[in-house]
Design a protein around this nucleic acid. Structure first.
Lengths: 211, 211
DNA sequence: GTCTATATAGGGATAGAC
DNA sequence: GTCTATCCCTATATAGAC
């Protein structure tokens, strides 16, 4: 009862601290301090820090799997793309600690590396399916190669948008508002392939997303 | 004499180890061990690990500043773009430890954050100048907004290409050959805006760069 | 310039009392 | 479940001999 609560509270607090300070800069002692519990108690609930990271990853994974599902039974339209990007970016924002030190975290944990690779594969498949759907609906015009390369760039820009933004300005901390800018930036990857009508429409919508 | 040599050897070895294992995972003791000198000796030459990182950054900075210079006095062509991307990617490759843990390294050092921001600003200016030059030479056709957004995406893809590649496959270590793929990926950001002739030309060239 | 020895601090993790 | 106490280990950094 109280056990369940503490167990969850450790995860919540860890996530908040990882996101705020970066996972490498947060120790198990810091987490225990912040929660007002003893380090020993923390280790009663989790084997080690990596265990905590893995549980958080599991949460992230399930959330991202939802966000990556593609509407079936009909061709996608631009509104679908917009919505899906929002879901994906929200998820990345909630678990941004993972993206901040992505290479180092995955280098130290083989399981997580494989699971993250799976997510990226799903994302790539999703992006290509959507782009091909748009092409089939004649909203977009691109060769097979162009779709393949663009999907790859969509993944890359999305994955590292937060890092790029954090590093681009001198201001250190990113804010949730900046997500919109990232979504806009991704949309602009596919903009050149859109029909004139949709490209104009996108440019109108895009005004709201440029910060 | 021997001092100078040791001082430089420390930098060279640090760079190699940082690149191979990631800066956070290499300690001053590891570096000293690898060199066959004592930790005390290392601290005779450098105040601390951060000092070493700063010296390496200075090397990187000067190298990148060269790579970012734009040919003056004439309009650029696609070959210029190709060449410049090679220079930039080579530089990123040589100092890839910096990009691997970019956010964390810059978060811990205000000076480096500012200096890296300056580099990014120069890169952005360079990218925009080149794109506008291509537009002026009528090799490329795009609006002011499209050029601005594309330049930003060029920076992002270039900056995080190595990280993306490291994380995309299950195979952990990136190889120098993969640079070509990254350059190709950047070229594909501007491909849709090229005249038909140049786009076809690019697609031909691109075959050599797809791994 | 270089080494050996050592101080200090902090993080990860466990044992055992309550 | 939770706390206190503690151990081990590693990293950074310095002092002083050679």
């Amino acid at each position: 009862m109280a056990a369940k609560q503490t167990r969850e509270r450790i995860l919540d607090t860890s996530l908040a601290m990882f996101n705020a300070q970066g996972e490498p800069n947060v120790t198990t002692n810091h987490i225990a301090d912040e929660l007002g519990i003893s380090p020993g108690n923390l280790y009663y609930h989790y084997r080690n820090k990596d265990d905590i990271v893995e549980r958080l990853f599991a949460r992230y994974e399930s959330r991202m799997d939802d966000a990556l599902s593609v509407p079936e039974g009909r061709l996608p339209n631009l509104e679908d793309v917009w919505l899906q990007l929002h879901l994906v970016f929200e998820c990345m924002w909630e678990y941004r600690f993972l993206y901040r030190d992505l290479v180092d975290i995955l280098a130290r944990n083989r399981k997580l590396r494989q699971r993250f690779a799976r997510i990226l594969n799903r994302a790539a498949a999703s992006a290509q399916t959507v782009l091909k759907g748009l092409a089939q609906a004649e909203i977009l015009r691109a060769t097979e190669d162009e779709i393949h390369a663009t999907a790859e760039n969509v993944l890359l820009v999305a994955t590292f948008w937060l890092n790029y933004h954090a590093v681009r300005g001198v201001n250190p901390e990113p804010a949730q508002n900046d997500l919109s800018h990232g979504i806009y930036q991704v949309m602009l990857l596919i903009a050149p392939f859109l029909r004139d009508a949709e490209r104009t429409h996108l440019n109108t919508l895009a005004q709201a997303y440029r910060r």
